[in-house]
Design a protein around this nucleic acid. Sequence first.
DNA 1: CAATCCAATGGTAGCGCTGTCAATAATTGT
DNA 2: ACAATTATTGACAGCGCTACCATTGGATTG
Lengths: 343, 343
Amino acid sequence: MGRKQTKSGKIRLTEVAKLAGVSPITASRFFRNPEALSLSKRERVDSAVKELGYVPNLAARALASHRTEVIGVVIPSLTNNVFADVLRGIYDSSEGSRYTIQLANTRYSILQEEKLLRLFRAQKPAGLIVTGINQTAESRKILESMNCPVTQIMEIGDSPVDMMVGFSHYDAAFSAISHILEQGRRRIGFLGARMDPRVQRRLDGYRDAMKGASLFDPNLVVTTSVPTTVTLGGTLFTDLLAQTPDIDAVFCVNDDLALGTLFECQRRQIAVPRDLAIVGFNDLEFAAAAVPSLSSVRTNRYEMGRHAVTMVIDAIEGRRPREPVIDLGFQLMVRESSTPSTI
Amino acid sequence: MGRKQTKSGKIRLTEVAKLAGVSPITASRFFRNPEALSLSKRERVDSAVKELGYVPNLAARALASHRTEVIGVVIPSLTNNVFADVLRGIYDSSEGSRYTIQLANTRYSILQEEKLLRLFRAQKPAGLIVTGINQTAESRKILESMNCPVTQIMEIGDSPVDMMVGFSHYDAAFSAISHILEQGRRRIGFLGARMDPRVQRRLDGYRDAMKGASLFDPNLVVTTSVPTTVTLGGTLFTDLLAQTPDIDAVFCVNDDLALGTLFECQRRQIAVPRDLAIVGFNDLEFAAAAVPSLSSVRTNRYEMGRHAVTMVIDAIEGRRPREPVIDLGFQLMVRESSTPSTI
DNA sequence: CAATCCAATGGTAGCGCTGTCAATAATTGT
DNA sequence: ACAATTATTGACAGCGCTACCATTGGATTG
């Protein structure tokens, strides 16, 4: 015999089968398709498993079945609070299922994404969740050849690889701007950082809303590719102010920038909302707590994570959703920072 | 033959070996221990791998070798910004290594932790990273029987299961309080949420520092087991104010509470720092941007993640660290919220 | 009551890789 | 130069599980 004897304590499926008085293959079926067993055998195997404390060897299972029970998740950032919420939804939904989450981070690089997808393909995941709809042509090809359910999250679009859960960033921004316009503001600035595809679409929504009111002015827009921080919000706002001093409102592509803008206003004694209205995006928890409370666009991130996993698992198990694209929408949370001052 | 023919396109190690003109086992060694190959064979295998686009089958490898290349990571929360930074360090350090991160979330439940550790044990990870030092006796037993390197992160203590990276929460809080006392403040409140073991130790540090100055008063302390939010900071501060109106400083166990306290002060027209000094914990990015900027205790979370992975990988590969416990320390970031008003 | 069917179960043969150990080639020392 | 040592390489036998197909026995049917 070529190798060390199997440790006597080691419990394999064979041991379970022996104790239960069935063949190994029947014991195997107990895990994969219990309904196929007669009630009596099912009970016998069940108690044998419990008595021996048997735990399946996933590597052997994967090797023999050419499948894994891994759901790959590809996100662009671990720092961004937005993804923390999505991930929470994903992990919460995957618990209690047989599936394991395998996380990978692209750091907003579509080439890194391509590389990660190639890696995932090699490991034959049971399902895949990827962020956004702006994959490279090559990435898309990989996704399509993946031969497993794929859900794109964060936004929705016309040509899903397979399934989608998200919302329209364009509509969300458009609706935020419409709200600010309704408040009678005319010179609405735009602060954007990172400028990933979803932020770009928010910019599009902003631009079209402003153009619709014949109020668009490129001098109202300040963007950077630098990652978002609260501090950066102050910097961008300062730039905007230098460039266009007569602004009466600012739409920030996320709440961190909005908070930074608010702080900068405090520093400069600009009264919010009297002199300047501020609207953020995502409705992070602090938005409601700020003074003045920050208006924001609530996005359903936790639910997005939950849906994504549920859709993928359902599809893996043959329960394809009737509607492959789910729009989770958004809610405009109107608060003090964009409504008439009560002072 | 019992099963579907292997797809002709499928590239196995055998194919690589054939193309390289070596035996499969030599090709196998190319991946596990390339130095053992002669230069010529190494090059031949290398080009064969590239030419065929071979990707190892991890399941087969795990099954045959009785090992996996998975590092398990057990953390209590996905929402908490603190862990986002740690995770970023962990993922950054694991990239480029052969190891894969497997994340599991206890939601601050030590029973859930026990369950997760049991799961991990069954899968024989190559290494393990767990949060904190307050495992149940049973969890500790599992960790010790795990037969792989284990690193405890976030804090340090006397009896590591194996290795540790962290800092002393007690010392950090003690030093924050000492700083506030040096500013001449006497009635220093304590706001705590979640009250997990590390927060408890911060409370201990606070208590001892106050007792050292003969200034401890239980009425200065407000805690709750509710998870932290900015909004909660305002609520707890309100409670503290009702309970002990004459406070002149507040130490918050994290920056979210500190920000909530700051907002509540703005709402109540309490001048910070003139009427009240505020010191937070963790030094999240917004602390420096706030108005007034928030003093805080900087913790090296990203480095903690990086170190944890590096230590585990080194240990897996036989390079045990000379010192199993690494104290990453902390830095007190003194800012406007706790120093004499400049106005 | 034979023919048909189907649910339940088992036998066989690997999945693709690596541990062990033996065999061979290259190198060294005296 | 030749034995002793060391670096390379290979053969063999599984790791623990499941796909495929075959078999069994009982229920159903006309």
